[in-house]
């Protein structure tokens, strides 16, 4: 079946900013998922390991959680941070 995407491709161009955003997300996603491969981690732990600011980790980790790639586990002993693990 013919795809309509070809139709719109002729009409629109994708801005660099949008392309950049996609790459950035892909990069962060890879980093986060990689750190979680070994064991469940908290957001500060992920931030430390990935060298990403913790709020960036929170946003992207929660997005990954929303789309089912990451799930929340237990909370740490201090009742402060949750551990997150791969699904």
């Amino acid at each position: 079946m013919e795809k309509t995407i070809d139709y719109i491709k002729k009409k629109r161009t994708v801005s660099e900013e949008v392309k950049e955003k996609r790459k950035e997300f892909a990069r962060i996603k890879k980093l986060i998922l990689k750190t979680l491969e070994t064991e469940p981690k908290t957001i500060p732990q992920i931030a430390k390991e990935t060298q990403l600011p913790s709020d960036v980790v929170t946003f992207n980790l929660m997005t990954l959680r929303k789309y089912g790639e990451v799930i929340a586990g237990d909370i740490d002993d201090m009742d402060e941070y949750f551990f997150y693990k791969l699904k």
Binding site: I43, P44, S54, D55, T58, M62, I75, F82
Partner: peptide, 14 residues
């Protein structure tokens, strides 16, 4: 909700 619990957006602390 967006997070698994009520958390701080900066570092996910409860």
């Amino acid at each position: 909700r967006p997070y698994n619990a009520v958390l701080r957006p900066k570092d996910g602390k409860m």
